[in-house]
Design a protein around this nucleic acid. Structure first.
Lengths: 140, 140
DNA sequence: ACTTGATCTAGACCTTGCTCCAGATCGTAG
DNA sequence: CTACGATCTGGAGCAAGGTCTAGATCAAGT
């Protein structure tokens, strides 16, 4: 019931969907695409059982996706982890490259934000001084 | 107050592409989609001639797109501007809503950034203390 | 046993936002 | 006049990232 229960019991796909914010469809899709580190365990009946590790990994995936990492990179990262220890330098490089992209993105967004804010100011002005503005710049 | 030259002469599609960073394909596409405020003027021979207003509008579009505004919203905004004065409140609302989304996005990115930074730290540590780490968390 | 809801698989389909192609035309430099 | 590059139109194609369907199976409640 708790969002952050560190329970040892495996979870169903629906529960994982709730916890990660991914849809069950997306979860199956990610698995097919090889984005998970290990194969997901199954019940005797064939239902997926996600471990806490799986969920942690997925939560990281979500963060990386949210910040714009393409699935291809995520897959590559998963592959590196799957290969086991010895390639930490590569993982580091992958993540650090992504961090740089995120930084650039934050910068760009802040610029956009100020343009938008300025524009919002233009309209607020217009409204404040009444709708009487006769001649004005259509792009404003 | 144009970003570059405040020339009164209209520009060709190629020149606008250079100035906006959009491809000529994208420029034609935007036009078809109704993302421009007015119809683009043409030469007698049928070539597009963009005014400084067109370019300014496109530069704003670029900023809005960069910050994740969907084309549909951009189109709606263009329609409001096309309708002329009187709907500034709606325009304001549209932009302000977008600004809020941008703020949320910046926030999210900063969170992602810190997760990534932490992860990078984990790998840097691993490398610093040598590749000898025997048992370790696969998700780390 | 029966009903209900969650999951299963494979694969078709969707949306967004362009990108590219074909074949024709324009316009400028030689 | 002749090239040659830039542009034109309409429409097809593409990549990413899922989403949804169909038909079957599993599991739990009554």
């Amino acid at each position: 019931m708790a969002t952050t229960e560190t329970s040892a019991e495996p979870l169903s796909i629906g529960e994982v969907a709730e916890r990660t914010g991914l849809s069950v469809h997306a979860l199956r899709f990610y698995e097919r695409e090889g984005l998970l580190v290990g194969p997901v365990q199954r019940t005797s009946g064939g239902r997926r059982r996600y471990t806490a590790f799986d969920v942690d990994w997925l939560l990281i995936c979500v963060k990386l996706r949210e910040s714009g990492m393409p699935l291809a990179d995520l897959k590559q990262f998963a592959e590196l982890v799957r290969q086991g220890p010895g390639n930490e330098a590569e993982r580091l490089q992958l993540l650090d490259a992504h961090r740089q992209r995120v930084d650039a993105q934050i910068q760009a967004l802040q610029e956009c934000r100020s343009v938008i804010t300025w524009k919002v100011g233009v309209y607020a002005d217009h409204l404040a001084r009444g709708e009487a503005g006769g001649l004005w710049d259509p792009t404003a």
